[in-house]
Amino acid sequence: MTERIPASLRTEALEQLLTERGLVDPAVMDTFIANYETNVGPLNGARVVARAWVDPEYRARLLADATPAIKEVAWGGGANGEHIVVVENTPEVHNVVVCTLCSCYPWPVLGLPPSWYKDPAYRARVVREPRTVLAEMGLELGEDVEIVVRDSSSEVRWLVLPERPAGTEGLSEEELTALVTRDAMVGVAKVSAP
């Protein structure tokens, strides 16, 4: 808790000590960081969503037991990859995801969480006043739509299966994948037709 030393220096010191003891290899760290910066991201989740939209049997498997179903179409391993549960948005029920205690988030399918997801204001407010928070983020939901706030934890990491937008009946799975955004899979946006 020696807060007078800047975090950058403490990080460098910790990496030195761990490297000297053979506990981390900086080159391996580089690989992990690069993977999360460039490879692991919402494209994985978008593939899962698009598959669920075009394949009803896959959709059923995904909603019943998401972790193995995700691995059918995307990489689903590593930290924060277990215990993913998928919930479906409908015209009547809108799910939105938060982690009230820290930042639990399904990394393999969404990448690392954006800063607003980790922010104390989002984490506290979306629970108390989800309709207002969603409206501030640009998603106006009718009063007749029930909003369900899903609190992620190390036991359950929620992923939203957004509604397939009208007018996309003729699109291929690949074209649909390109429409799905991270925000829609967190539940703070909807997917729009192209």
Binding site: S8, T11, M29, F32, I33, G41, P42, A46, G111, L112
Partner: peptide, 25 residues
């Protein structure tokens, strides 16, 4: 839909943050 650029977020706001992240992972 390419990550992470499609969603326009900088993952780390300083280099040490990525090292701290990488160490834990």
């Amino acid at each position: 839909a390419a990550p992470p650029r499609a969603n326009g977020e900088l993952l780390f706001s300083a280099p040490w943050e990525s090292r701290a992240f990488g160490m834990a992972v």
